[in-house]
Amino acid sequence: MKTKPFHCLLLPVLLLFCFGGVFYTYYKPIISNAQVSTEECLNIVRNTFIQTINQTSNLNIPLNQQPLVTKPAVMEENQEHHANDIIMLMWSWPFGVVFNGTACSSQFGIKGCQITDDRSQYDEAHGVMFHHRDISGELTNLHNMPRHPHQKWVWLNMESPSNAQKLPGLDGLFNLTSNYRRDSDVWVPVGKIVEIPEKDKTFEIPPKDKLVCWIVSNWNPNFERVKYFNELSKHIKIEAYGSAFNRRINKEDYIKTVTGCKFYLGFENSVHKDYFTEKVFKPLMFGTVPVVLGTSRENYEQFIPADSFIHVDDFKSPQELAEHLTFLDKNPKVYEQYFNWRRHFIATHSVFAIEQTCRSCEYIRNYKGYRVFKDLTKWYWG
């Protein structure tokens, strides 16, 4: 296999997409069915997300590849408007972060989408995006608002049912769903495995100085992942980071840390069909083998190459898993087989809310039929 410095292949892509996902994950407020996130927590998420995006402007990334802005401007002044454009009204910007108005065209090749937060355009809007976390106090008003026959209300939520507050009054309110689940109307997974151009089919496993790593801030002794970690750590050394271990990882060190690990514990905080997050896609992007705990192996394999990851369910116990990881550490030729998929594919990470909005715009342009989601609560929370 030809070699090429790892950072030369992936760094320009990773710098743009990874930081927002990292801090969205490790600083986000956790919502249970009985608890709504506080304003303070939401401010932390928003401020961290904004700081992360602002830093990309110093990395020689072309302006048209920077899809987020933090100023209150809604549309780019030089964006062309046409009579047949689809107008997407953001009822509220997710976590208060504003999209660049040209993101759909520059990032996804989806043209003819106007993104605005100007509610005076409500009557003209073809689609209205509602972020689940932002509507808890507005449901009564939303039910009293007239929805025009041509208009689609899109329910946006990328949290699992365990981490999303179940709200009364969702049924019959929305026309479309945009979610990580494959059976949502506008499916946008957290990440994807995509084919790489012929000229880029080179890969070098980055140098490793750590065996097993885990970065976690949301620590709950009742979580299955915490129980499994506690048992696994009895049998193998794990470099654990995050606020749960008083070893916070800053933005600069995150990629370096994960890249230097042979294995990364991609343990989800809840188990639901189709629910796997950047905890698996980021290690795949950085040249590390994820060890996953979450939905079934069969479900993972519908999205991710079977030989690119290790599933805890493949082993009878954490001790048996530890023995397998130790074996791979001592047998580099066997370990390297976990990267055979990189001859043909790379892993990518979606930019939260931007892609959902653009894909929704595309959907609304292509599908004009009548649609109302009558049983959203049952579909999502069961």
Rank of each mutant, 00 (worst) to 15 (best):
E40P: 00
E40T: 15
C41R: 10
L42V: 12
N43Q: 06
N43D: 12
I44W: 03
V45S: 14
R46M: 01
R46T: 09
R46N: 01
R46Q: 07
T48Q: 14
F49D: 04
Q51P: 10
T52I: 08
T52P: 05
T52D: 10
N54P: 08
N54E: 05
Q55H: 11
Q55T: 06
T56F: 01
T56A: 11
T56I: 13
N58C: 14
L59C: 12
L59V: 00
L59Y: 13
I61H: 11
P62N: 01
P67D: 02
L68V: 07
V69I: 11
K71A: 11
A73F: 08
V74Y: 09
E77Q: 04
E77W: 08
E77D: 13
N78T: 05
N78G: 03
Q79C: 09
E80V: 13
H82G: 12
A83E: 12
N84K: 15
N84R: 08
I86L: 00
I86Y: 00
I87F: 01
I87L: 07
L89A: 09
L89R: 07
W91R: 03
S92W: 01
S92G: 03
W93C: 02
F95K: 04
F95S: 09
F95M: 08
G96P: 02
V97F: 05
N100M: 06
G101I: 07
G101K: 07
G101C: 06
T102Y: 00
A103C: 03
A103I: 01
A103T: 02
C104R: 04
Q107D: 00
F108K: 03
G109A: 08
G109R: 01
K111H: 15
G112L: 03
C113T: 05
Q114E: 13
I115R: 08
I115N: 11
I115S: 01
D117K: 15
D117Q: 10
D118A: 05
D118N: 04
R119H: 14
R119Q: 11
S120E: 10
S120K: 11
Q121T: 11
Y122I: 14
D123N: 10
D123E: 14
E124T: 09
H126Y: 14
G127M: 05
V128F: 02
V128H: 02
V128S: 03
M129V: 06
M129Y: 08
F130N: 00
H131G: 13
H131L: 11
R133E: 11
I135D: 01
G137W: 06
G137I: 03
G137H: 14
